[in-house]
Every structure is written in structure tokens, then in C-alpha cells.
């Protein structure tokens, strides 16, 4: 039965659901390495740039990159506390997002910062990346915690 929302103008409700079979391709290794406790980035040996999120191909040289393990230590480059979000994350609110500047990585990595005291967070604070023991095979399988 079609659900009618209004008569004038006539407005009907139509649900829509879809499942994608999404391949991580050559970056799959980032996720599989997490299960052995390793945080991996990719590095272009040609221009010496290290990428996280990993890129299989260097955007500067178009050379193929190599996997390298990183320490997961770093600093907060900038942060935000979110009180609203897309529909599927409303249940998590409020939460914090940070760009972290990780040791040995040239790009900034966007991740959640998990801390009990969100008010004390400042740019420049040291963090350490954590890995979930219960993988969802998404980028949310890693996050930052303050390294005190």
C-alpha cells in the first residue's frame, strides 16, 4: 500500500533500499593488516611521498606505491566536535573528528578522536592511533586517542 503524506498537493512516500558489493581493490591490505595490529600506509619510492589514506598509485608520479608500516603516533592538526551528522551517524552524537599529522606520513588523516573529556582537546596535542578488535572493514576501524 502506498503511504499518502498529503492530498493537496498529492504527496506519496516511496522507500528505497540498496546493497552495494564494494571492492577496496589494492587498498584492501590496509584493512587486512589491521587484524594483525599493523597500521599501513603507502609510499611512492619515486617522489618519496607517503600516503594515508593509502593510494595504490602516486598522484604526482603515477608510479605504483609500496606498503610501509607506520607508528600511528602523531599530533592533532585541527579538530571539530559534531552535534549533527548524516542520518546513519545521528546515534553517535556528539563526537569529535580530527585531522591528524602522523609520523612518517605526508598527508593528513581524518579520523575520530575518542576521549572522555572533549573540552580539553587542543590543536597540537599528541595522539596515538587505535585499532578495533571487532572490525567492520571500514575506515572507522581505526581512531585516535590522546597520547598522555
Amino acid at each position: 500500500m502506498t503511504e499518502v503524506y498529503s492530498i493537496d498537493p498529492l504527496i506519496i512516500k516511496t522507500p528505497y533500499e540498496i546493497t552495494y558489493k564494494h571492492s577496496y581493490g589494492k587498498t584492501s591490505r590496509f584493512f587486512t593488516a589491521l587484524s594483525s595490529g599493523k597500521l599501513m600506509a603507502t609510499r611512492c619510492e619515486h617522489c618519496k611521498t607517503t600516503f594515508l589514506p593509502p593510494r595504490s598509485d602516486c598522484p604526482y608520479c603515477l608510479a605504483e606505491t609500496k606498503w610501509v608500516e607506520i607508528s600511528g603516533k602523531g599530533k592533532i592538526h585541527t579538530f571539530s566536535t559534531l552535534y549533527f551528522s548524516g542520518e546513519r551517524f545521528l546515534k553517535d552524537l556528539p563526537f569529535q573528528l580530527v585531522y591528524v599529522d602522523l609520523e612518517g606520513v605526508d598527508t593528513l588523516f581524518l579520523t575520530r578522536l575518542k576521549t572522555k573529556d572533549m573540552k580539553k582537546v587542543k590543536v597540537g596535542m599528541k595522539i596515538r592511533m587505535k585499532i578495533s578488535r571487532d572490525p567492520e572493514w571500514r575506515s572507522s576501524d581505526v581512531w585516535a586517542e590522546l597520547d598522555e
Binding site: 585541527t78 559534531l82 553517535d92 573528528l97 581524518l110 590543536v123 575506515s139
Partner: peptide
């Protein structure tokens, strides 16, 4: 936005712009 990396952690546009705004302030 990038649905492999930036969206699954709860990213959305006001959040992305907030991060950039905070850095501009800093």
C-alpha cells in the same frame, strides 16, 4: 565526499568545514 575514508567515520560537510575553519582560526 570520499565514501571509503571520510564518510564512514561520521563525516559530513558541516564537519569538514568546521575542521577547516578551526585550522583557519589556529
Amino acid at each position: 565526499s570520499d565514501t571509503d575514508w571520510d564518510f564512514p567515520i561520521g563525516g559530513f560537510y558541516s564537519g569538514y568545514y568546521a575542521l577547516m575553519a578551526k585550522r583557519h582560526m589556529e
